[in-house]
Design a protein around this nucleic acid. Structure first.
Lengths: 256, 256
DNA sequence: CGATAGCTTGAAGTTTTTCAAGTCTTGTGG
DNA sequence: CCACAAGACTTGAAAAACTTCAAGCTATCG
């Protein structure tokens, strides 16, 4: 293990030298409880990882939840065939390791994609704090809810054709900024989108050809967000009212 | 609304006329708290639904969590194109509506696929009980964990070829029994598996031809579970050690 | 018992993958 | 600091996996 454990104790948020980040609500709450003279010995360490290092492995009995302060992680599982399946990418402000909260083995692992900084919160401390704080319990449920929503969204997107999925992906990692540094390889992107690296390469070329974006190394510059948005949504016309399948029809709209 | 609200008050588990079912831990816990003289006015109603009826709709502000006592539901979202995307099938012993627990709108809806009975637990009561019971909190986290695990599994399965996904599906709905009644239509199955109904039909025909199963109406009889299991797993040989992508390699095994 | 939706099956068409062969990058050791 | 090796990326051609289209059959529900 050659990751860095930089600090180990109470410290105000935003003390790290890096840019301000949107801190995760749970991290904030834990910090607050710390300062409000909680009797629990909360040890929130900040740790740094470099590309390729594991934050945790599948099957681990996680003792911490991690709030990402900087950088990007991927979470993955190992399929029956022994190959990695990427479940998601996670960056600043997101929580990792929530699935250890119930005290069971994690089903997935997490690996840093670039240089990352996390705030490590002991599960014991969270649970102890949750015994006291209704607000914390509420936040935890919200975090779980968010996670389930993310997975559900990804599942419901799986059916779109490749160009749509890819355009959607570009926009999602770009957020509102015009340029993004993409920390994942084509292989990782393709795994995530259920494609093959060649297809990702071709799509990137196509989008560039059409003047929707430009690529320089790992930097993508969005030139035509509207076009990408259109591409990401286009399927076929939502003709008529919501379609329910299996003879189960939305009863919202009686015929004219 | 022509669903039936049959009973409305405290009653022991397993009172319904139907077969015994594996009750969900949360339901059991809530029942226990009821009998232990909880001061909360818990109103756990049992309700019956018929095929096509909504348990709840996407965007609803759910006020209950539902424990399925009998029958099967599908959960779904409406995609950007207005079409239904099935997220999962849920039967006896599973909890529905967990995503309302954080007090936000649900992203998905739930529809009965056959005649179903649910036990309806008010969220307010759950939250009040959770304030008191550490055990209940633990169980809730476990339920969330289960849900995340299910979704993650589904995501990591998405990459398999059609016959594999389908064989896996058959086995998963059959459980240990040799015969299953499949409450969903081919259209629903195909939506769930990200296929087209024709493909499902063809695969069913193929499996039957090979003597792996027989079909009579909505009944499937498993004849060769081993063959299905093989079919569900076959991809290509897990040659070598776990493969990590993007130059990120498992450092578990140093060379010989 | 007629109609509506579901199911089946064949043939053609598309999308995406596979295979192959280069080129480009990046990290490492000399 | 350069050279080399390993992996990443690109691009074309061929193939495979599914889907689409079409048409007939079958169940189910009023």
């Amino acid at each position: 293990m050659n990751e860095t454990t930089s600090t180990s104790q109470i410290r105000p948020i935003h003390t790290c030298g890096c840019d301000a980040y949107e801190p995760n609500p749970i991290e904030v709450l834990m910090h607050q409880m710390l300062h409000n003279g909680s009797e629990y010995p909360i040890q929130m360490a900040k740790r740094t990882f470099r590309r390729g290092q594991h934050l945790y492995r599948p099957g681990a009995n996680g003792k911490h939840v991690y709030s990402i302060n900087r950088g990007t992680f991927k979470t993955y599982r190992i399929g029956d065939d022994g190959r990695e399946r990427i479940l998601g990418f996670h960056s600043e402000g997101m929580l990792l390791g929530l699935d250890s909260l119930a005290g069971r083995q994690t089903h997935c692992g997490a690996i840093a994609l670039d240089t990352t900084v996390i705030c490590q919160i002991p599960i014991a401390a969270i649970m102890a704090a949750a015994d006291k704080s209704k607000q914390l319990r509420q936040r935890l449920f919200e975090q779980f809810d968010d996670e389930i929503d993310r997975l559900g969204t990804r599942l419901s997107l799986r059916t779109l054709p490749a160009p749509q999925r890819f355009a959607h992906f570009i926009l999602s990692i770009a957020g509102n900024s015009a340029t993004v540094t993409v920390p994942m390889t084509n292989k990782e992107i393709s795994n995530y989108l259920n494609l093959v690296p060649e297809t990702v390469s071709r799509l990137l070329a196509k989008f560039q050809q059409r003047g929707w974006l430009t690529i320089e190394g790992r930097e993508i510059q969005i030139l035509d967000r509207a076009a990408l948005l259109t591409q990401s949504a286009v399927a076929d016309a939502p003709r008529g009212h919501p379609k329910f399948i299996g003879s189960i029809v939305c009863e919202c709209s009686p015929g004219p």
